Computed example of a mutant assay.
Amino acid sequence: MRPLLRWTVALVLVIGAAGWAVTGTSAPPDDYAALTGDAEAGRVTFALAGCASCHVDPEADHSDRPVLSGGRRFASDFGVFVAPNISPSPQGIGDWTDTEIMHAIHDGVSPTGAHYYPAFPYGSYNRAEPQDLADLVAFLRTLPPSDAASAPHEVSFPFSIRRAVGAWKLLFLSDEPILTDPATDQIARGRYLVEGLGHCGECHTPRNALGGLDHDNWLAGAENPGGEGRIPNITPGALNWSEADIVAYLDSGFTPEFDVAGGEMADVVLNTAQLSDEDRAAIAAYLKAVPAID
């Protein structure tokens, strides 16, 4: 039994060491440091990414210069995640380098090398172009600082093990496009907006038991993590609006049935209303091009 025990212990140690190695974090790309961000371009990128929708204090009003003090709570099957302070202050991200912020947004890695939970939608943000990230960081630097402390997440064992998020990334994190063959340049632009910084699939696509997106049912609707209602199917199999209807909704929040966007979608419309007419049309064209799911 002793040789068997020794071999078993050795095998466990080897597996553990391999698991530790593959669930580590990567370093940021070298080319991030060479980029110069444009704050005005970043203002639009900021709106597309929906940063204010999550990181403005839930008791505060939205404005053109939001205070990103955090505090909003997001319930999930894995616990409650609390949006942190990402304002340009020492309590937020003011002491981070531009490269560290871009690495966090794109790869879900903190300046200390820890994994962020995928409640932070870097699973979509990782499709963003580096220049868009640099522009976003430049705009974030212009916003008012907040000295509010970030509240801890309320996540119990085993989900509290940050290193395990590395395994989640190995299983589910990809920057490959979902719609593989856009028929036009407009649809390709819509794909970039929807699948990337717009992160529409993070809410409108169902997830598996481990929280990974079910790409076979892309944008086909999902349970609301907060427990109220269902997030709708926005593929052509359920959404029968015309492209013009979608464009108008993303601009005004009014539906073809003379209803109005409510709940979290109202925040989304505040963001998409800041995009250009061309980008709203690109989003509409993309939504009409994805596979229809009943």
Rank of each mutant, 00 (worst) to 15 (best):
A167L: 14
A119I: 15
N271L: 06
D30A: 15
L143V: 05
G79T: 10
G253K: 11
P206S: 04
V67F: 05
P158H: 06
S76A: 14
F81Q: 05
V268L: 14
L213H: 06
P145G: 01
A114Y: 12
R230L: 10
D251F: 10
G108C: 07
I187V: 15
D279P: 03
T97F: 02
T8Q: 12
S69W: 05
W96S: 00
T36M: 09
V44L: 13
A238P: 02
D267A: 11
T97R: 02
D277H: 11
G37A: 08
D64L: 12
V290W: 00
P225H: 09
P66V: 05
R72K: 15
T99Y: 05
I93N: 02
V44M: 09
T8Y: 13
V44W: 04
E129L: 09
Q131I: 06
H204R: 04
G71E: 07
Y117A: 09
C200E: 01
S242F: 06
V269S: 06
L213F: 12
F157D: 09
P111L: 07
V290S: 03
D30L: 12
D251R: 15
T8E: 08
R141K: 14
F172N: 09
R163Q: 15
N271F: 03
V268D: 10
D214N: 14
A164M: 13
P3W: 14
D251K: 15
V67I: 14
S63W: 11
N85S: 09
F254V: 11
F254Y: 12
V247K: 07
I161A: 14
G196V: 00
D64T: 12
N208M: 02
P256L: 08
F258N: 11
Q186R: 14
R2F: 15
L171K: 12
P232Q: 01
T25S: 04
D259L: 13
D181T: 10
D135Y: 06
G19N: 08
F254I: 10
D95Y: 05
C203H: 05
D38N: 15
D98I: 07
I101G: 01
A41N: 15
D279G: 01
F46Q: 00
D251V: 04
A284M: 00
R43M: 10
Y117S: 14
A148I: 00
T184K: 01
A148F: 02
A17R: 06
V67C: 05
D57S: 15
D64Q: 10
A244N: 11
F172Q: 00
G19M: 11
W218I: 03
L270P: 03
T45M: 12
L35V: 10
V260G: 06
I101K: 02
L197D: 00
H62C: 00
A49E: 06
D267T: 09
D98E: 13
S160P: 11
L171H: 10
G221P: 03
T97V: 07
